[in-house]
Each structure stands twice: as C-alpha cells, then as structure tokens.
Computed example of a mutant assay.
Amino acid sequence: MKKLIVVIVILIAAIAAGWYVFSTKGSNTNTEARSVAQAGDIVARVNGEAILSVDLEIIKAQLAAIQGVDIATAQADVKERLQTTALDTRIGQVLIQQEVTASGFVAPAKDVEERLAEIRSQFDTEEAFTAALAADGLTVDSLRTQVANDLAIQLYLEETLGITDVEVTDEEVRTSYAEAAAQAENVPAFEDVQDQIKAFILQQKQQGLLDDFVQKLRANAEIQVL
C-alpha cells in the first residue's frame, strides 16, 4: 500500500508541474530580474553562459511548492537538496535551450499567438493581464519571447525524442499494480487506480528519455560550478 500511495503522490506532483516543468518550463527567467544581478551572483557557467543565483531561487520556489516545503523553516539538509536539484535542473534547462537554439528550431508564430491568447483568457480584462505581467517584471513582448522559446523547446523535444509517442501497455500497468498489492493489504481496486498508475508510468518513461538526453548534452558540455 505504501508503494502505491507513493506512486500516486509522485504522480500528483508530476501532473501539477507538467512532465517537463523542471527541464523546460522557466528556461527563460525574468529578464529584468537577471539584468540587475551583479557578477557576484553567478553560480555556474554552461558553455560560457552564466547561471545566476536568481535563476536558482525561482526553481527552488517551484520545487518547494510542489513538495510542500517551507524553505524559510526547512532543515539544512533539505535546503541543500533543493539547491543541488535546482542547480542540476537549471544546467539541464540551459543545455536544452542551447541545443534548440543551435538547431535553428523555432515555434510556429501561430502556435505562439494561440498560447498567448490562452494566457490572456485567464484574466477578465487586458488591464488585469498587463498588471499581472508587470508584477512579474514582464511585458507582452517579453512574454511572447518566453512563450516562443518554451514552445520551441517543447516541440523540439516532442519531435526529436518522440516524447508524445511513448506508450504504456496494460501489462505494464497490471504488473506495477501487482507489485504494489503484493506488499500490502487492502489496496484500492485495480479499476480505481489503473489510470493513475498508467499516467505515472508514462511520466516516468518520458522523464527517462529527457534525462538521457540531458546526460548526453552534459557529456559534451563545459560546465563550471563556481
């Protein structure tokens, strides 16, 4: 039962974040926030590109929110783990962005505008939309650039790695359920959790492809942690 609960908890976190959130989303950090950072804020370089402490703070906040961790009151080992994970994540983001840029891959303008329209639709008025952007140090143009970059990464990974082509068989789902059920009593009925288990296995397979891709990029990259 414990393993099954862990599976479901991890799944919820994965869905909340999006399967590629730590590898792609947020790959374009707040430009204005980064522009005011001083040289002393550089924590690493990836193929000469600087990673700033402000970049890591954004990722740590995302990680902490998903894990339900209060950074302010967290134990030292938890903070260290968040810092390490955030740095590894940011390095992966930069490597992927560099790879996509070098490939010349760009998102179709139509897709970018559709995504912008989706974001706008979350606000009642244009004024509320621009106010929300301003609060994050963004403008419509800078958001458009960020959306274009994020979409390019997403589409590149889908096309190059076949992320969306990954499949999960019924046998894999039943095997995972059987392994969990063998370790505990009173597990939920298979029919009640099969969709969650399938989604979790799918996310794990997709993440595995992404991890392998990033590791290959890291093997050929010049990375300096300062």
Score class of each variant (00 low, 15 high):
2 K>T: 15
4 L>S: 01
7 V>A: 08
9 V>F: 11
11 L>M: 08
12 I>Y: 03
14 A>T: 04
15 I>E: 15
20 Y>Q: 09
20 Y>R: 11
26 G>I: 12
27 S>D: 11
27 S>N: 12
29 T>R: 11
30 N>D: 14
31 T>D: 14
31 T>R: 15
31 T>W: 12
31 T>Y: 13
31 T>I: 14
37 A>D: 03
39 A>S: 12
40 G>T: 13
40 G>W: 05
40 G>P: 00
41 D>Q: 11
42 I>W: 02
44 A>C: 07
45 R>Y: 14
45 R>C: 09
46 V>H: 04
46 V>K: 01
48 G>M: 01
48 G>P: 11
49 E>G: 00
50 A>Q: 06
50 A>I: 01
50 A>R: 07
56 L>G: 06
57 E>L: 15
61 A>E: 15
61 A>H: 03
62 Q>E: 15
64 A>W: 02
66 I>G: 09
67 Q>N: 10
69 V>P: 03
69 V>Y: 03
74 A>I: 01
74 A>H: 03
74 A>D: 04
75 Q>C: 00
77 D>V: 11
77 D>P: 04
79 K>G: 09
84 T>R: 13
84 T>Y: 08
90 R>Y: 05
90 R>D: 07
93 Q>A: 10
95 L>H: 10
96 I>Y: 04
96 I>S: 01
98 Q>N: 08
101 T>A: 14
102 A>T: 08
103 S>L: 03
105 F>S: 06
106 V>L: 08
106 V>N: 13
107 A>F: 06
107 A>L: 09
110 K>L: 13
116 L>T: 04
119 I>N: 08
119 I>R: 12
123 F>Y: 15
125 T>Q: 09
125 T>P: 10
134 A>T: 08
137 G>P: 13
141 D>K: 13
144 R>Y: 12
146 Q>Y: 02
146 Q>L: 11
151 L>P: 07
154 Q>C: 10
155 L>K: 12
155 L>W: 04
155 L>N: 06
155 L>V: 03
161 L>I: 05
161 L>E: 01
162 G>T: 06
162 G>D: 02
163 I>T: 02
163 I>W: 02
166 V>Y: 02
167 E>G: 04
167 E>Q: 14
168 V>F: 03
168 V>G: 06
170 D>F: 02
176 S>Y: 09
178 A>N: 08
180 A>Y: 04
184 A>L: 11
184 A>K: 12
185 E>D: 14
185 E>C: 02
187 V>Y: 02
187 V>M: 01
187 V>H: 01
189 A>R: 11
190 F>N: 00
192 D>S: 14
192 D>L: 12
194 Q>R: 05
195 D>A: 14
196 Q>T: 04
196 Q>A: 15
197 I>R: 00
197 I>N: 02
199 A>F: 05
202 L>K: 07
203 Q>M: 05
205 K>E: 08
207 Q>L: 10
208 G>C: 11
213 F>I: 07
214 V>Y: 03
215 Q>N: 14
216 K>I: 09
217 L>W: 08
220 N>A: 10
221 A>V: 11
222 E>M: 07
223 I>G: 00
224 Q>N: 06
225 V>M: 08
